[in-house]
Design a protein around this nucleic acid. Structure first.
Length: 559
RNA sequence: UGGGGCGUCGUCAAGCGGUAAGACACAGGAUUUUGGUUCCUGCAUUCGGAGGUUCGAAUCCUCCCGCCCCAGCCA
């Protein structure tokens, strides 16, 4: 049975929520939000946040908004908005009619800024970016107050209006919060609230030339949406005092509370937007949805399921420790889900021709094969058998090691769902490579073990040569060859050169004739595969989602 | 260096003063017409270190060590 993701999880954030519930904060209402900036595709790290925010909302009968945090026009676009909507929905979450855009609040945010000026809590600063940096001080030295810090409210109001009207060049002025230039927390040293930027915004066009900064827009967007718990990642911990400062100055009554958790790091991949963009832009991968990418769309195309990803997110937990999660846990979650629901079929990746010498020429049979060994309700299918077959090259060895259970000189092996066959001879080409095997079959073994009681250990998969369908199969491996490429500045040096292998001579059984993109199968003994959208009628293309656990490979490889 | 965080098995992670959950990984074994699945079994005398408080400490106190974040008019 597929295990539903346990709705009632526990972690320090839920502890805080429950404590608040006991104290009846926000009248028992719980509201979260997932706030991506639409300047890239979301990845597995975002999925952790999505599962957290939507999961909490579901668990406490609250709501979770989807919000585009689009306050910096640079790099943001509708393409990204659409991809985010698609991906969050695919992950299985629903925000009803609560899709918001920070940019929808630009007017209200502007009014809040005016209010801050009127109460003497913000001022227009005319220092250049360089001057601001210099006067900010350092970790050990206090900053210096801006010479414009004590402009009158009237002057500030006048200047701010004119900033909005486009009277000044980019960078000529900023609106700054008047807090404390000597604060040990650099975030509190009169942070910039608004900057002038003549950059068309993908939603508001050229209506605005001033844009609010994250610190100003985010907390107020939370407040405007009635968010109770604003969950973000650890690097914003230093910003929390500013979050609270702004909200306290401008919002009456219930205020949102920011809580930070550790972002996800996954082994053998990179998760930073900058690096992901580089992989795509420099064509190290085929695009955002390349099956090797840790993006949600990449995993979708790879054949990972939403259930598996949600389960993974539940499994890793939520805490404040820096972490590097082993991909094998993700792969485990994918196998666990796919094992449950995938129909079994046979595919020969690297074919080796086998002729059954004592099987009559021209004869063929149909064998009924179970679609799932543990789930008879999933039915069965007919698989054709004939005199000439293909088996996996790996399943024959001229000089096999002792524990090898497959075919070799003098050996017998079971053809999955069919007969026991016995090796007779091999044919080699001029290079000495084995190109064909001759075997004989035992006609009494189709439905059971040999009558004389002899043991046949190995079972191998096969496909009937005259019936099999040629298919393209793409095998994927980890994108990087080191555990933590994200920790390396020259991360591209560690790309795994063998992360993609394309097989053009594979054969799948005849029942796979009319497969549809996205459908998943287990190719017995090999792994889980899904049909790639590149597939065309009569020319299926399969992606290997994840290989089966292979204790033989581990054993053989270990020696 | 100032400030903010974090240190429990190889990797995650419970634990909230009463004597170290669970998952993945790993290692054995059983069943098996997938070397798959499933099922058993094993896997931290110890919680970054050193002191202290206590009948009792991963949990409280002190000091030390290590790692992460902050000096964008990015988020």
């Amino acid at each position: 049975m597929t295990q539903p993701v346990n709705l009632n999880q526990n972690d320090f954030i839920r502890d805080i929520i429950e404590e608040g519930l006991r104290e009846n904060k926000h009248e028992g209402r719980i509201a979260t939000r997932f706030p991506p900036e639409p300047n890239g595709y979301i990845h597995i790290g975002h999925a952790k946040s999505v599962c957290l925010n939507f999961g909490i909302a579901a668990q406490y009968h609250g709501t979770c908004n989807l919000r585009m945090d689009d306050t910096d026009p640079m790099g943001e676009s509708m393409e990204y908005v659409e991809s985010i909507i698609r991906d969050v929905r695919w992950l299985g979450f629903d925000w009803g009619d609560r899709l918001f855009y920070a940019s929808d609040n630009f007017e209200k945010l502007y009014d809040f800024a005016v209010e801050l000026i009127k109460t003497g809590n913000a001022y227009v600063c005319s220092l250049s970016a360089d001057e601001v940096r210099e006067s900010r001080g350092t970790f050990t030295e206090a900053g210096k107050e801006s010479p414009y810090r004590n402009r009158s409210v009237e002057e500030n109001l006048d200047l701010f209006v004119r900033m909005r009207q486009g009277e000044f060049a980019d960078g000529a002025h900023t609106l700054r919060a008047k807090i404390d230039m000597t604060s040990p927390n650099i975030v509190m040293r009169d942070p910039v609230l608004y900057r002038i930027k003549r950059e068309p915004h993908y939603r508001t066009g050229d209506k605005w030339v001033i844009y609010p900064m994250y610190d100003f827009a985010h907390c107020l967007s939370d407040a405007l949406e009635g968010i109770t718990h604003s969950i973000c990642t650890l690097e914003f911990e230093n910003n929390r005092p500013l979050y609270d400062w702004i909200v306290e100055k401008l919002i009456e009554g219930n205020r949102p509370r920011q809580i930070e958790f550790a972002r996800l790091n996954l082994s053998y991949t990179v998760l930073s937007k900058r690096r992901l963009i580089e992989l795509v832009k420099k064509n190290y991968v085929r695009g955002w949805d390349d099956p090797r990418m840790p993006t949600v769309t990449g995993m979708h195309r790879r054949g990972y399921t939403p259930e598996a990803i949600r389960n993974f997110c539940a499994e890793i937990g939520v805490a404040k420790n820096d972490n590097l999660i082993d991909v094998s846990l993700l792969e485990h979650c994918v196998r666990e889900d796919l094992n449950e629901k995938s129909l079994r079929v046979m595919c020969v990746l690297r074919p080796l021709k086998v002729v059954i010498d004592n099987y009559p020429e021209g004869r063929s049979e149909q064998f009924e094969c179970q679609n799932h060994p543990q789930r008879p309700e999933l039915g069965s299918r007919q698989v054709p058998f004939s005199r000439v077959l293909y088996i996996e090259r790996d399943d024959f060895m001229e000089d096999p090691p002792k524990k090898y259970h497959r075919l070799g000189p003098g050996r017998e092996v079971r053809l999955r769902n069919a007969y026991v066959i016995k090796y007779e001879s091999m044919v080699k080409n001029e290079d000495g490579e084995v190109v064909e095997l001759h075997c004989t079959y035992d006609p009494t073994t189709q439905n059971g073990p040999p009558a004389d009681g002899r043991k046949v250990q190995g079972v191998i998969h096969w496909v009937s040569a005259q019936d099999a369908l040629p298919a393209e199969v793409r095998l994927y491996d980890r994108l990087f060859s080191i555990q933590d490429p994200g920790g390396e500045e020259e991360f591209l040096q560690y790309l795994n050169p063998d992360s993609l292998e394309i097989l053009n001579t594979s054969y799948v059984e005849a029942s796979l004739k009319d497969v549809v993109p996205g459908s998943q199968y287990q190719f017995e003994r090999l792994g889980y595969f899904c049909v790639d959208p590149d597939a065309e009628p009569g020319k299926p293309v399969f992606n290997r989602v994840v290989a089966l656990r292979d204790s033989w490979a581990r054993m053989a490889g270990g020696k």
